[in-house]
Design a protein around this nucleic acid. Structure first.
Lengths: 181, 181
DNA sequence: TCCGAGACTGAACGATCGTTCAATAATCTA
DNA sequence: TAGATTATTGAACGATCGTTCAGTCTCGGA
């Protein structure tokens, strides 16, 4: 159902038209071509996320909830690196960066290094449940909804971000050493 | 160049054949069809990762290094949820789970909740730099190689996993409360 | 009431797709 | 070397793709 299911090029205009109960010619008449349809879909996603988008780890669930069935399309947008996907990623990253910079300043976020890079890490990690939604659903049980799944992984994610996962400095030291080599 | 660039259905057999300097007919003769070619590519990736694959956060760099130019294909494999992609994800997840269970037992990994779910979170977060490689490269500067980029984000990632990112319990408490509601 | 503009359809076109096939070149076996 | 097997090609086929187009339907304003 739509580009989100099998990707853009694997979804024909005739499929889309049939799902909408109209003819293929009308789709082209309205959107000016397949690329126009894609742009309209991208704009629709951006519009749905216009009022509030955030890079905070806990907010991915809300984004997915707002998008509903459109979230596979969003995942493909960001993963494929289309213009609209890039723009959206940059927006999420910018908000994440602002949140981290402000948090470091007022003491609610630990200073673990260069804030822009930290924001990048947090952003891509926060998007992981969206991009790997298929895998997560499969592992946690196909019956659940995407929202349930995201709620299930929210707690461990929050705890990792709060208390850390590794009790020793072994990994951090190893990475630092490799970086100096 | 290959399925990794634009996806499976957007890459024609004639493209692949031309890149290999042979005819399209020969590709089909050898692989039995486009699906056979895909299966052969999947098997090749699995073979390259056969000796060692791990879910540890620091090991994604090694996986990418071993795959080299094939890593976009791997990202698409796992993201699209093909059979081979599912199998690979399950393997990474299993190793990540074993690592975490063992770590909790010997005290090197903090007990932040249900180990299978924690392993799932760690696995998808570790795969994020691979799936979002395009975005990360774009943000950090197109000039760099994938390996350099992964090394650049390794340090903050390790620190987050070691010391945590949030200095307060606000997020964890909010998530816990939402979960009980 | 008429009429013009947009909504809409279905057939058709050229391009490209995956695939087949007969024919040829290359390589191996006895 | 003779014969069989394999590698390889290029043309062709049917299907499907995005797109075009002539024509029909719908309906609000003069």
């Amino acid at each position: 159902m739509g580009f989100g299911r099998n990707g853009f090029s694997a979804t024909s205009i005739r499929e889309v038209a049939a799902a909408a109960g109209i003819s293929a010619g009308l789709v082209i008449h309205h959107f000016g071509g397949k690329d126009g349809l894609r742009r309209a879909c991208d704009d629709r996603i951006l519009e749905l996320l216009e009022k509030k988008s955030t890079g905070a780890p806990e907010a991915v669930g809300e984004v997915v909830a707002r998008l509903g069935d459109y979230s596979p399309y969003l995942a493909r947008m960001i993963g494929d690196g289309s213009d609209a996907g890039n723009e959206l990623f940059d927006r999420i990253l910018a908000e994440s960066r602002a949140m981290i910079v402000a948090g470091v300043k007022n003491g609610t976020v630990r200073d673990v290094g260069d804030p822009p890079t930290v924001a990048l890490v947090v952003t891509i990690q926060s998007l992981a449940p969206l991009l790997l939604n298929t895998q997560v659903l499969r592992v946690l049980g196909e019956g659940r909804t995407t929202g349930e799944v995201l709620r299930a992984i929210a707690a461990p994610t929050a705890k990792i971000y709060t208390s850390g996962l590794f009790a020793t400095d072994a990994l951090a030291l190893a990475v630092a050493e490799a970086g100096n080599a």
